[in-house]
Each structure stands twice: as C-alpha cells, then as structure tokens.
C-alpha cells in the first residue's frame, strides 16, 4: 500500500520535472500520449482488476467523453477546462446505464455485451451525420488554443494525478475492499453484507468517468474526433497495457502504458508487424506472466521473503 503510493508519487515527481528537462516537441508528444494511455489503462484496470470482469467495451466511455468534449467545443464554444470535466460526467452517466445492464452478466456474456455497446456507439457515431458528422468526424476542437505541448503535458499530468488519486483512495478504502471481495469470492462478499451489484457499479462508473476525462482531453489534444475512438484496436492497446503491467495493481497500468506507447511509436511504420507482435505479447503474458510485470516482481519478492515453502505447484493453482 505505502510502496505503491510511494512509487506513484515518485513517478509523478519525475513526470513533473520532465518539461524542464525536455523541450523537444516530439518527445513531449510521446510523454503526453504515455500519460493519456496511463489514465485509460488505470480506468480499465478498475473494471478488469477490481470488478474482476473483462470489459471489451471500455472505448464506449473513451468515445463518449471525446465526442462530448468535441461537441461542446465545436458547437457551443466551451473551453477545455469546462468541456473535459463535462466529458467525464457524461461518460459516467453512460457507465451507469451500461453498467446497469452489463453488470448483471458474468464471464463471456459480460465480455460480449460490453463489446456490443462499444460497437453500437461506433455505428451510431458513423451514421448520425447530423450530430457527429459521420465518418468525417468533428475537426477543429478547441481551435487556436494551445500551441506549446508543455501546456498539454501539464494538463494531462494534472488529470493523471487526479485519476490516480481517486483510484488510490478507492482501492485502499472500504469500498475498494468490498470490490475485491466480490472479485475473489462472490458468496463470501454477500455473506459479509456487500451488495455485489452495487459494489461493482461503483468501480465501473468510476472507470467510465476517468476514461471519459481521458477522452475529453484526447479530443482537445488531437483537435479531432472520429468514430475510430470506438475501434477495437484502441481497446486491444489498452488491454495489453493493463495485462502487461499487471491488473489489480495501480503501478502496473502505468508501466504498461509507458512500454506500449514506446513500442507503438518505434513500430509506427510497421502497423501490421506491430500488431502481430502485440498479439504474441498478449498470448505470452497469459501463458507466462498471468499477473503481469508487477505480479512477477511481487512474486520474486515473496519468494525471497517470508514464504520459502511456496512450491510452484501450489502457486500455479492460486495465481
């Protein structure tokens, strides 16, 4: 708990110092994207790692956030400081509605229905031309505002700090423990008075809110939003970040986000090769590192530490 907090604080301080050391716009862009992805991965992790159900529809919230911010900016001239929080709130409302339906389901049904919601939203964004401008998307979000990438970096760092603070508070609170109880053992959770549906809903809506904030920021940063925000490849990228870093930890998604952002950038020209590699990475993680890098580190610590009798056989069954 304290270790995780200190690591996060340390990373935050490092990130805050970055704009003083780096002025190269390209490097700053990478840093902005890494933080943006860290927020997203963290928000998905609340669902995957703490509700314990696998959502393939998280782009629904990223997308509604992005479209909300874009529409408010383009049509009503809202500034960024107002549009981004509004994006988060609208996404949270969508989270409430979608959660009310999907959180009654488990396993493959949950996976497929969350995916269905993202697809429905993508199709609507693609076809409701009067509002979303269809496949052309909405351009010129927050036009003529900010030129220096360092300002965007400061904003995304602020958002990251906010979302990680909220996650940290949630995860290490009574409510977070209740969510973990539901994930670990639904029956025990109920028997100690946890309402599994309500508890999952809290984490789900919080995740949606944070993804919506990220979406709103993305709209202003790229200054364009199209139906691609709902795309599955976006989803796949976020999943890989969470899995690689380690679901159910707060540091894991950050680590995953940084690694995957860099990988994406280095293999930019080789789209198919990059995605093939991602596919292999996903399989390798599931087979060899089921708890991600953070889980691997934790296990090494555990093995060196106070649990020498842990035989590999027992471990396999319990991870």
């Amino acid at each position: 708990m304290t270790l995780e907090r200190n690591v996060l604080l340390g990373l935050g301080v490092l990130a805050a110092l970055l704009p003083f050391a780096v002025t190269d716009q390209y490097l700053l862009h990478l840093a902005v994207m890494a933080l943006f992805y860290a927020i997203l991965a963290n928000s998905l992790n609340l669902v995957v790692g703490y509700v314990g159900e696998f959502s393939l529809g998280h782009t629904a919230f990223l997308g509604t956030g992005a479209y909300t911010a874009a529409l408010l900016s383009v049509n009503a001239g809202w500034p960024m400081w107002a549009a981004v929080p509004a994006a988060g709130l609208v996404a949270a409302l969508f989270g409430l509605g979608i959660g009310a339906i999907t959180l009654r389901l488990q396993g493959p049904y949950f996976v497929i229905v969350t995916l269905s919601f993202a697809e429905v939203l993508r199709i609507i964004a693609n076809n409701w031309i009067g509002v979303t401008n269809g496949p052309m998307g909405l351009a010129g979000v927050g036009q003529g505002g900010i030129a220096d990438k360092r300002v965007f970096f400061a904003i995304v760092l602020g958002l990251a700090a906010l979302t990680f603070y909220l996650s940290y508070r949630f995860v290490y609170s009574n409510a977070g423990r209740a969510a973990v109880a539901v994930r670990e053992n639904r029956y025990v959770a109920q028997s100690i008075g946890v309402n599994p549906f309500g508890s999952a809903m809290q984490a789900f809506v919080l995740g949606a809110f944070m993804a919506g904030l990220a979406g709103g920021f993305y709209a202003f940063y790229i200054s364009f939003v199209g139906p691609e925000v709902f795309r599955f490849s976006f989803m796949a990228t976020i999943i890989i970040m969470v899995l690689m870093g380690g679901k159910g930890t707060l540091v894991g998604p950050v680590v995953g986000a940084v690694i995957v952002t860099l990988l994406e950038e280095y293999l930019r020209e080789l789209q198919e090769l990059r995605l093939s590699l991602f596919g292999l990475i996903v399989m390798a993680i599931v087979l060899f590192l089921p708890n991600g890098l953070m889980g691997f580190i934790a296990r090494r610590r555990e093995q060196r530490g106070d649990a020498p009798s842990l035989s590999p056989a027992i471990e396999e069954r319990t991870v």
Binding site: P108, A236, S276, G279, L280, V282, I285, V286, L287
Partner: peptide, 13 residues
Amino acid sequence: ILLTIGLSIFLVN
C-alpha cells in the same frame, strides 16, 4: 478469452 484475443490479433495482422 485473453489467449484467443491475442491469437486473433496475431492471425489478422
């Protein structure tokens, strides 16, 4: 589910 998602991304690309 995760394994086959990884496999599908790999096979497509």
